[in-house]
Design a protein around this nucleic acid. Structure first.
Lengths: 190, 190
DNA sequence: CCCTAGTTGATACTGAGTGTCAAAGTCGAG
DNA sequence: CTCGACTTTGACACTCAGTATCAACTAGGG
């Protein structure tokens, strides 16, 4: 039954793809499911079945990043300090947006000017913190320590990501995103 | 026209106060505006006029914290390092929850098990970051530097607050909250 | 006392999100 | 190829959040 799931996520991608320009043009709140469905050529019911909420239509593409960052963190060499490893572990996120910078910027702009999307993305990000913290405890050569410390380290890394993305978006992508990440982490240790 | 505004916020407090136990008992999503209004003895229209959304009924009490933390930060002595000043600037938030620990814990629990409230609170917190960053630039004896650094410092301070509150809530308030804040900041510099 | 401005509750409306159902489509087994 | 099980789809009905409007009411200032 794998073909079902493949088809399902392909349809998801396609629906989101047709929805994106509408959101960008007219604003997230001004577009209804009815219109999204009409443009995509399906019924409102079907569209709603693929996304639990309107926010998900925009934000579901961020979902894999949590697991990808955990994997990236676990792949860092044992001798690397936690903070450095975390900095490198953000690469799935920067890569996701840098793959197609124009679309990445449009996405961040849309999110930035839509409070509901800001809130939901922050919620998603907050959901990544526990996983990263656990990965910190499980990485090769991890020294035991309080959970609080790992949560703080993971949380600050994600906050560096957020701040960097904000500056990247407001520079229209002119500044190198990975450079901003490095600068953000530098600000942590001075 | 000051009496109007005083009366207005007094009514707000009272409405929120009557609503809180309902949310705690039956869950945020299971309570409708209709019920809130009935219990409070006003019409649905009136209740809705005092709060822009259902989330605000629970979260509006956090609103003053942003300005209070900025004020607290500006009051810190000039010789204090930015990070230390930020740590102390969180005291309005810890004080707000420690004033009545039982209610503070109930509030955090309610938020913790309601995704919509999590998201909105995170949004509010994110809104405090720019103010704190600006205050960092304006504090007595501030050395000029890139905005990115100040945003990161303010963001990490707020993340320390979030993580500390999370641990405080999951310990049922047994662990000292200000101690957790200190420990969180310690994790930043090692 | 009256006039004005703000408050209230009633009503109606849009749109998100849920649930149900029958019809149509898909896939594997015989 | 055909049958039967399972899935997907679209239609419909429903609840509730949130917005807007309006007439009745109320409080404060002159």
């Amino acid at each position: 039954m794998k073909t079902r799931d493949i088809g399902r996520s392909a349809v998801r991608d396609e629906l989101a793809r047709t929805a994106f320009p509408l959101f960008c043009d007219r604003g997230f709140d001004e577009v209804t499911f009815e219109e999204l469905a009409t443009v995509a050529g399906v019924s409102r019911s079907t569209f709603l079945r693929y996304f639990g909420s309107k926010e998900e239509v925009v934000l579901f593409s961020f979902d894999p990043l949590g697991a990808q960052m955990v994997e990236a963190l676990l792949d860092r060499p044992a001798h690397e300090k936690d903070r450095t490893a975390l900095r490198h572990a953000l690469s799935p996120a920067t890569g996701f947006l840098n793959r197609d910078p124009a679309e990445g910027l449009a996405l961040l702009r849309l999110i930035g000017r839509t409070p509901a999307l800001c809130a939901r993305l922050r919620e998603k990000q907050a959901g990544w913190r526990p996983g990263l913290a656990r990965a910190l405890a499980e990485r090769p050569g991890a020294r035991p320590g309080p959970d609080l410390r790992r949560q703080v380290l993971a949380g600050t890394a994600l906050e560096c990501l957020t701040v960097s993305l904000e500056h990247w978006a407001s520079s229209e992508g002119d500044i190198d995103l990975d450079g901003l990440i490095n600068d953000s982490f530098s600000a942590l240790s001075d």
